[in-house]
């Protein structure tokens, strides 16, 4: 990790901008995906990951697929921004190997549950949040 010693903070930084249209957002997403895809061998190499490039690329693909149905350009822009930050931090060696393994793990999303499942599971989340007024 020789180049980590000469970290340039602005390396790989991009100015934030809003997508002008859904087509523009799509182009940017594809570019983002391409950056990750191309960086996969280097990430495996630099972080000494106990995983293959294919596995990492598969994990990255899953992340993108999870948001495939998004149509709101503003929501896509937020995800793009976050992904770009992740990418910059990863490629600049601002992370530890564990952070990268975090990307590769299955995302911990709670499956959507029906009313009855929630009811059996326990108390409903919003209703028992007490409405406290603080100190009089």
């Amino acid at each position: 990790m020789s180049h980590a010693a000469v970290t340039i903070p602005a390396r790989l930084a991009q100015a934030t901008r809003a997508s002008t249209s859904p087509a523009d957002a799509r182009t940017r997403v594809i570019q983002m995906y391409r950056d990750w895809y191309r960086a996969a061998p280097e990430i495996v190499d630099q972080y000494y990951l106990d995983a293959s490039t294919t596995q990492l690329r598969h994990a990255i693909r899953l992340r993108f697929e999870a948001n495939r149905n998004l149509t709101d350009v503003r929501a896509i822009d937020v995800l793009l921004l976050k992904s770009r930050q992740e990418y910059q931090e990863t490629m600049n060696m601002w992370k530890q190997p564990d952070h990268i393994y975090g990307i590769m793990l299955q995302p911990k999303e709670r499956p959507s549950r029906s009313f009855l499942q929630k009811f059996y599971e326990g108390r409903d989340e919003d209703a028992i949040t007490p409405a406290a007024s603080g100190v009089v």
Binding site: F115, L116, F119, Y120, R123, D124, A127, I128, P130, A131
Partner: peptide
């Protein structure tokens, strides 16, 4: 009216009990 404390044990909000029963 607002909830000050949680219901005890396995008790649930009343409308939810009926809603769950309806589903069953």
């Amino acid at each position: 009216g607002r909830a000050a404390v949680p219901p005890p044990g396995a008790a649930r909000d009343d409308w939810k009990v009926i809603r769950a029963l309806a589903e069953v």
